[in-house]
Structure formats: structure tokens, C-alpha cells
Write a protein that binds this DNA or RNA. Sequence first.
DNA 1: CAGTCGACTGCAAAGGTTTGCAGCCGAAGA
DNA 2: TCTTCGGCTGCAAACCTTTGCAGTCGACTG
Lengths: 348, 348
Amino acid sequence: MPATIRDVARASGVHISTVSRTFSAPHLVNPETRVRVLACAEDLGYRPNRAARALITGRTHNIGLIVADIANPFFPPLIKAAEGQARHRDYHVFVADTNEDPVAEEDLVHALAKQVDGVLLCSPRMSNSLIEQVSREVPVVVINRQVAGLPCVMMDVGQGARAAIEHLLGLGHRRIALLGGPRGSWTAREMRRAATAAARGGGAELTILGPNQPTETGGGALAEQVRRSGVTAVLAYNDLMAIGLIEGLDAIGARVPHDVSVVGVDDIALSRLTRPKLTTVATPTAAAGRTAVDMLLQLDSDAPRGARGRGAAAGDRRTTAQVMLQTELVVRDSTGPVPAPGRDGTVA
Amino acid sequence: MPATIRDVARASGVHISTVSRTFSAPHLVNPETRVRVLACAEDLGYRPNRAARALITGRTHNIGLIVADIANPFFPPLIKAAEGQARHRDYHVFVADTNEDPVAEEDLVHALAKQVDGVLLCSPRMSNSLIEQVSREVPVVVINRQVAGLPCVMMDVGQGARAAIEHLLGLGHRRIALLGGPRGSWTAREMRRAATAAARGGGAELTILGPNQPTETGGGALAEQVRRSGVTAVLAYNDLMAIGLIEGLDAIGARVPHDVSVVGVDDIALSRLTRPKLTTVATPTAAAGRTAVDMLLQLDSDAPRGARGRGAAAGDRRTTAQVMLQTELVVRDSTGPVPAPGRDGTVA
DNA sequence: CAGTCGACTGCAAAGGTTTGCAGCCGAAGA
DNA sequence: TCTTCGGCTGCAAACCTTTGCAGTCGACTG
């Protein structure tokens, strides 16, 4: 029932190849012919069959986007941005969710491999070596992780964590806790590294709690532990955990920021709506999504037709750019000066 | 580079058709041959090219899922459920986001039409007639809306709204506001209808505020108006608005539930984490996602090959089931007895 | 022993599109 | 007038898989 290129050709009295060219290389066909063909196509409601096109061009015009948990508000802006950018270039995005499971992650990328032109691996939980392995099967751009030899787009959470710690130091805090993220997270490692260094540099003591589930529940569950540890400030792996922690602290009678200062990471929409408004490290999620799509498509157009699957495997491709996006500390209401009465801060 | 069916055939010394059957109809090939072929396939890393398969079978094994706003926490559970159910049947899900824009919605379904076997239209904002029109182009299952002649899966928000109003009536409230949802939303209309009837039945006065943007911001913006209107209880279009409203009320000095009771709809994860915990109408989102996928696949397997695009158009298909899923009122902490001092309730 | 049947496998067409190559035609240059 | 060239179009192969049909072969039935 759906009109094919042949129907259009018949209707407009030209050969199918002319119809094909009308769409894929308009400059090659006579303007008059072109308008006639277009009119017929419009008339018959013709839309090129992407499967057939994919078969011959080797390009599906689809890209896969694998995220850890679509329900985490961190991801939707990234997904939207990626989708928008892709649509703009006549690509579609498959979004898939791994439920934070490294195994599901691997299965998914295999399943996707044959029906997309490339995969965006966002905040992967699997090992670097596994990532390298799958990248031999399908072009991959990694988001939120650094993998040698592969194109990556990262957000500078190290710098963000440093800024957060320095902000807290400036408020007089000297006993700080870091709520670690999930196991296998590159971001978690980076934050830890940077926060540790910054704390040491400022003469503060950093307690690391984790790894944890990066959710409200995960944050809330740590309230008791934070309270007991005697810290006056907390840097959480993400906003969700920070918000959960604030709720949890509130429930056991600790006030934020009066008793404890809390800093999150991500600057999700919600962080502007809770009370107190959350001080947080804003990550350029949308930009990351757009950049990743661009890099993938770039990669893809570089690769000679038929050479898909080789891709950047051997690292000989000099297009394996790695970009680091800047983060920014946004100071709101969940951080304040270290509580005065306690004899906790050593250096004043 | 990627191995084709021909490579496998050559390697295992059989004809390509035998290889094909090894995968798509294993019972038709000799067990010995089968293991040999499978071994070779495994060895070469062969994976069937879905585009080629799609070309001949007419089935892409993809389904599209169009949602209004992926950042609204209502959708992710539905998306996850749909994805899971689809994966289970060897289908993949395209998720696309319309930003609450009816026009983007239409474009999207057209763009998707040719590369999926069907589309799940979730909480559509476009008109019924437009939906019917696109359903002639590609099989469609509608979620959260009733369209005559098309398969639909709905959640009984009418019953939920009634239960919510009755709950409020039971607490003594007689002046109630309904925070309406976005224009074009079937759910919003249903709620309004049911809430109006229930309020009238209980001798209460129902003020309708809206339409509104179904977000926290949208809810927060209504705080003043709610305060001024003198109502003692509010039923919001969804949890996000309810939460925004509570924040907004709090900011202007009205306490929930002491001064105003608030009920949401959806029971998103967040509603359990705010304080006060939100009383809300739980909607079976995950079930809706699963059901919709099942219905679509069912529809799809009924349609004779090559007849795609006709589908349930003329309403002659008796498989156009419409299912209504039950909702349930979950009473938490955001609702309480009507404030005693005020002389507001007319009937006591 | 002839005939039948069933299990298995090969053959070839078909599906819709892209694209290198070749052909046509008219215009410009010699 | 004869070439040459460029703009445009047609031809046909190719992409990879599925599937109806037909063929082979051995075993079983009568």
C-alpha cells in the first residue's frame, strides 16, 4: 500500500533513479523534472523506505543512546539535546536504559550495534576494556568517562568538586564528607580524586562515604551516618543524593544549612525547587549531548563506506578527540558558614 | 568487514537459505547442520542485518514511543516498562520527545512511521481527528486518551479524581480547587468531569484553575491564586504541580496540610520524598507501558503482511480493544481535616 | 519391489533504494 | 559542418535476507 519509488517514477514519467536523485542529489536533476517529481511524491505520500536505503548505503541514520537510568533527572536534558541535534541532521535516537547494570549495558550495545550507525555510551558502568572491545564492533562515543583511544565527552567534575570544596573551605568548614557515587562510575572517581586533593590543600579532613546508589533513597540512607561523623559539610555525588540527604537530615533534626552544608552536582531542575535551594555544581548536560552527537556523526562521515566496525579501533584515527566541558559552581541556599558554637573548625 | 549470511554459508558449506533457516526456523534444519552453522556464525561474529530482514519481511522490529516530555517523572517508568516488554519480544523502542508541542508530535509520528512497526502515542496533545489520520499511516496505540476506533490504554483518572474529592469531602472540605492540566490533555478533561460531578454530589464548591503547564513551576505559580480563592483543599493535575504548589504555598506562609490540603496524581517517586509526603492518586504507569506494547504487537501480528498502513483505520478490525486501568488513592501527609476556625464550609 | 512420505536442503525471486556508467541531446567552439 | 562538452537521464548491478517451490535421499508401507 505505501507508495514506493517506483510508483512515483511511474506517476511522473521518469526513471526511478531520477526520483532517487531528486531526493538525495537534487542538483543533478533538471529543475522542471524535480518539481514534477516532488509534486507526484507529495501526492502519493511517498516516503523513502529507510530500510532499503540502509541496506545499500550501509547507514541506518539511527544512533543509539545508552544511559544508566532514564528516571534519573540528570539524563533527560542530555537525551533531549541529543535527540534534537540528531533530528537536525536527519538522524533518530534510540534511547535505552540499563538500570545501572553493566551486563545489561553490554547486551544492549550488542543488540543495538547492527541497527545504528553508532552508539553514545553515557555514564557507562562497564569496564574500559569492555568498552574498547565493543567499540571495535560499532563506532562509539563515550560520555562521562575517559577511555584512551576513544572519542569522549566529559564534564569537568574534578574542577567542579574542587570549586565546591573551596567554597566550603571559604565558609570555614574543615570537616567535610564526600558521598561517593556508584561503583564503576568514572565521575565518582574523578570527584573523589579532586575533592581529596582540594581538601588536603585546604587543611581539611575529608571523609568518604560510599559507594552508594545515586538516588534520593541512597542519599537519605546516609543521613544518620553523616550526622554521626561530625562533619559540617557534605559534597554529594549528585543532586538527587543531596536532596535525599537533606530530607534525611531534616527528619532526624539536623537543619541545612544551619547545622550542615550540602552541595550537590548536576544542577537538575529540581534543585532550584527544593527548600533550601540547593548549592550545586552545574554540569553542561545538554551541551554534552549535542557534542557527543556531533562527534559521532563526524566519526561516521570520516569512516570510508564499508569500513564500519573498524572505526577508531586501533587508535590510528586521529579524529578520536576528547573534549572536556566546563562545570560551574552555583551557590544557593544549602550552604552556609560553619556552625559557630561547636569547636570543630581547627583553623579559623 | 562485518560477516554476512554468505560468509557463514561458505564457512559451513551449506546454502545461505540453510543459514537463514538456522536462525529463523531452526526446526527445519538438521540438528547436526544447525550446530555447525551456529558454530561458524559465532566464530565469524555474524549478526543478521536487520535492515535487509526488514526489507523483505516488512517488519522492522522497532516500535516508536512518543511522549510529551521525557523530563516529566511520570514518563520514565512507563518508558522503562515499555522498553522491557518490547525487548522481551525482540523489539526495540524509539523514544521521542515532543516538548508538549502538538506540531512536533505530528512531525515525529510521520518521521517515525516508516521505520517502526507501530507507534505508541502517549498522552498526545494533538486532536483526535489528527490521531485517526496518522493511524491510517502506521499502526497506533494510544495511551492516556480515548479515541474511537483505535486501541487505547487509559488510566481511570476519573475514578481517581472522584476518590480524591470524596477523600477531601470526608475530611470536611467544601471549597476545593482543581488545578487543570495542559490544553489538549484527555486526562485533564476526564479529571475535570469527574471532579465536578463528585464535588456537586457532595455539596461542595469546585473552583477550576487552568489550563496550566503541568510542571512544578506551573504549580508554584498558582499559589497566590489558590490562597486568595479561599479554598481549603486542592486537587492538582499531577504530582509535579502539587509539589510546586506546596512549595509556593509554603513560600507565602500557608502550611500544608494545616491550612490547605493538597492531592496530586501519578504517585511519582518524588511524592514519597517531599515533606509533607504527598497524598496522591497512583496511576499504573508501568502496566500501561507493558499493555500498550502488547496491544501494538498483537495488532501487528494480526495484520496480514503487506496490509500495513491500513490497520484499524475503518474500525472494521475487531481487535481494537480499549483497556482501562484502575487507579488508587494513596493517602499520605499532605491532606488533613478542614481548618476549624474559618467559617468557610457551608454544610458541616 | 514399487510407491509414498517426510526430512532436509538448494534454487531463485523478491523487497526498495543507491550509484557508477553510458547514452542522449543541444549548444558552444573550431 | 564537425567536435567537444556539459547537463540530464536511463540502465542495471548491488546491498542482505527471507521464503515458496522443487529436488534429493532414505525409510517405511503395502
